[in-house]
């Protein structure tokens, strides 16, 4: 079986290093927090102004003043800090945040990403994604390999409006793990029971398997 959302999150959690600051986007990236190996010290940044974000609160302990960037109620860990939005993006721009994990609609073989707008259909906005991808040292994308119609989301070039250019280093999909460098997707690992043929068939961008 290919990876489900939890499988993708678990695989990405293996990429997270001890003693780092990490920003998690909405969706699958949020799940990564649940699978960070025991004993590792990782500080989660939420761009609305938290370092040291903790898990969801117990029922009855929700605090309307304490939410994450996905507007979900959360808690704070010991040693956390709160700051304003200008400082939050200041630390992102100054590359103090070590790793950014976010979702995407499309990723290209040269590391471009689209994830904020489908012209004429959906315009939600870029939120903090453009700031994050323009500045982060290391960015991992978590997404499905194909869209609902079965079209590849790993492309020669993005067809949707861009969020950022030449910025994505790694993509983890339901089918496997891919590094992006030198204008190609490099297959790093196949998800369980996924064949090389399937990945080749479902990857529209340049794919190197060695």
């Amino acid at each position: 079986m290919a990876w489900d959302k939890i499988g993708i999150a678990k695989r990405i959690a293996q990429e997270v290093q001890d003693g780092t600051y990490v920003n998690l986007g909405i969706g699958i990236p949020t799940l990564v927090a649940n699978y960070i190996p025991e004993g590792m010290e990782v500080e989660l940044q939420s761009e609305n102004g938290i370092l040291g974000m903790g898990p969801f609160p117990f029922e009855g302990e929700e605090d309307a003043d304490l939410i994450n960037a996905g507007k979900q109620t959360v808690t704070l860990r010991e040693g956390s800090s709160i700051f304003d939005s200008a400082m939050s993006f200041g630390m992102i721009r100054a590359q103090k945040v070590d790793l950014t994990i976010l979702g995407a609609m499309e990723v290209s073989e040269n590391g471009d990403i689209s994830n904020w707008k489908v012209p004429g259909k959906m315009v939600k906005g870029m939120g903090g994604a453009m700031d994050l991808v323009a500045s982060a040292k290391n960015i991992i994308v978590a997404m499905q390999h194909c869209d609902k119609a079965g079209n590849s989301k790993l492309l020669p070039q993005c067809s949707l409006p861009l969020t950022g250019i030449h910025c994505i280093k790694k993509v983890v999909t339901d089918l496997g793990v891919f590094d992006i460098r030198d204008g190609a997707f490099h297959l790093v690992e196949l998800a369980p029971d996924v064949t090389l043929e399937e990945v080749i068939a479902k990857t529209a961008g340049k794919l190197l398997t060695q």
């Binding site: 761009e47 939005s85 200008a86 721009r93 453009m130």
Partner: peptide, 10 residues
């Protein structure tokens, strides 16, 4: 007018 969140703050 949609603008990046950090740009808005800054």
């Amino acid at each position: 007018e949609l603008i990046p969140q950090g740009t808005l703050a800054t």
